[in-house]
Amino acid sequence: MKRIILLLICMFSCSSVLAEDIVKDPLGSVQWNDMYNAFLSDHPAKFDDKIRVYAPDFAEDPMNVPISIDATQLTGVKAMVIFADFNPIPLIAKYYPKKAKATLSLRFKIQQASPVRVAVLADDDIWHIGGVWVNSSGGGCTVASTGRLAGDWADYLGDTYGKRWSNAKSNRVRFLIHHPMDTGLVSGIPNFYIEELDFVNADGEELAHIKLYEPINENPVLSFDFIGNNLASTILMRGEDNNGNEFEAEFVK
């Protein structure tokens, strides 16, 4: 009998440990456990003030919410996962800096007020998580893109505009790619979005890889800070959307 009770106690305590395995969410979102299980369950997670996430409190334009991430206080950053708990498609981007700073800026569509989070996998194999609440009057994901409305998106598809800023330690690259980035949530318009971008230098050295998802804004604008062994080298971008269209651009010093 005693053994059974002990066993029961053990079972209860074990199960309570399991339930608390997922750390409590400082942003108080009911979706947090689901988000952890969906995107981060391969490693333990902790909330960490060292992850600086910048986004406006209110989504002035729900189709274009700017977010900037600075995780340079961590070492050996391998991956960043960016998601918004209450978006109909929560996942925004997955970034894999290789020879790049642990920084990133982009814009995305928000459907309603939501925590916007960045999980950063560092050399300790723990997801370090930062985030902010972005308030919104809503509707960013279920409105047709302006390119769709105007009907001229195909004329500009893949046209890339941008610039490179070089200094002694890194190269900042900012650019805009023309693409409707359709979420698939507007009736009659299937999802159509840039899925990935790769960055290499002229020596073939891999600088970074990023996967983008439907919530990224129409005509995405992104910023990266690349390092690498040859800072003077031309930087090449190659990308592809989910319909097999390929994109290329060169950032010359």
Binding site: E60, N64, P66, T160, Y161, G162, K163
Partner: peptide, 21 residues
């Protein structure tokens, strides 16, 4: 000021960005 960044900054970016492909 923050709202104005959202409204106006894209047009200033487009003045700086050059065609890359």
């Amino acid at each position: 000021f923050s709202r104005s960044v959202i409204h106006l900054f894209p047009s200033y970016e487009s003045e700086v960005f050059k065609r890359l492909n």
